[in-house]
Design a protein around this nucleic acid. Sequence first.
DNA 1: GTCTATAGCGCGATAGAC
DNA 2: GTCTATCGCGCTATAGAC
Lengths: 189, 189
Amino acid sequence: MKYDSRKDEIIQTSAILFKKKGFSAVTMRDIAKEMGIKAASLYNHINSKQEILSEIIISLAEQFTEQMKSIKMSDESSIDKLKQIVALHVNITSKNQFGMASLNNDWMHLEAQLPYYLKLRKNYENDFRNIIEKGIKDNELITQNPDVMVFSMLSTLRSLYIWLPKKEDLDIEKFTTELSLVLINGINK
Amino acid sequence: MKYDSRKDEIIQTSAILFKKKGFSAVTMRDIAKEMGIKAASLYNHINSKQEILSEIIISLAEQFTEQMKSIKMSDESSIDKLKQIVALHVNITSKNQFGMASLNNDWMHLEAQLPYYLKLRKNYENDFRNIIEKGIKDNELITQNPDVMVFSMLSTLRSLYIWLPKKEDLDIEKFTTELSLVLINGINK
DNA sequence: GTCTATAGCGCGATAGAC
DNA sequence: GTCTATCGCGCTATAGAC
């Protein structure tokens, strides 16, 4: 693996450890040891442990926000938009399996950036629900509580970081299709 | 709220705090303060912070194990068994919204009990997959990768602890039916 | 059963040499 | 850019008075 910079190496190494034990249980000494340097040396590249977490989470949250924007702007059917959202999660997660753990589990340890993160997350969930609601109105989706549908799909998509790494030989494109099928059409014959 | 014992009160209070910040970020002083006593006094009732976590997680894991046993032993159709699993998760989560956060996010901080927890979890997932595989063989379920189906359903069920508390006025029985419908039949019209 | 006091340790972060 | 040394603090847990 190669890194853009020493700072980038710190962030990526930290993400691996954060996934294993959570942000709070990982020490600066742990991160430094993993890189073969001393904890004090980390501070030549980053300002605080907090900053490492922020960089991991905010960068991912912004990727989701940006790509959701182009999905919702497109003029496809609601079902096709949902399939694109599935692909979005599979793609980002397959490239950031460690960071996705922090995004899901350690966001509450953000400090200055917490309100910004919460805003991005709320907007994302609203966009998701709007797509579902339009699908119901257009008679593409069943007439059921849209909150339940958003919850169900999003829970699965947010858990991909746990599951994808266990299937390393996975064909990403094939998996995306299978998962879309299960999420949208169910498992009943 | 009432407690069986002072120890029970410690466990339930801790679960609330563990859900908010995670096991590692909660201190014995935090727990004591929430109960209006000093941290040292906690040790009259429990032996360690570890023990609190173990009690929360293992008790829940054993409830799932026990109830899965009676579901898999029954002679219902695979689809009805899946509906019962949905009901199982909704029921346990609605009664233990705080503890379920620890079960999902802090199991890696178990020490002596970690292997036991992992065994229970693995058995549970195997039972779940066996039900799905029988459903496919019996032509009740679509012929798709059973791992994907287990992952998708279980991810949603495991995330209930995040979502149920936000819908406090929820009719549990109605919600169970809606969720089963979405998980089994999908959202496509 | 709760308290005060504290042991013993590890934490995040800084100073300053090289 | 990394090191050694260390500050100041908060952690889990224990001892012993009441």
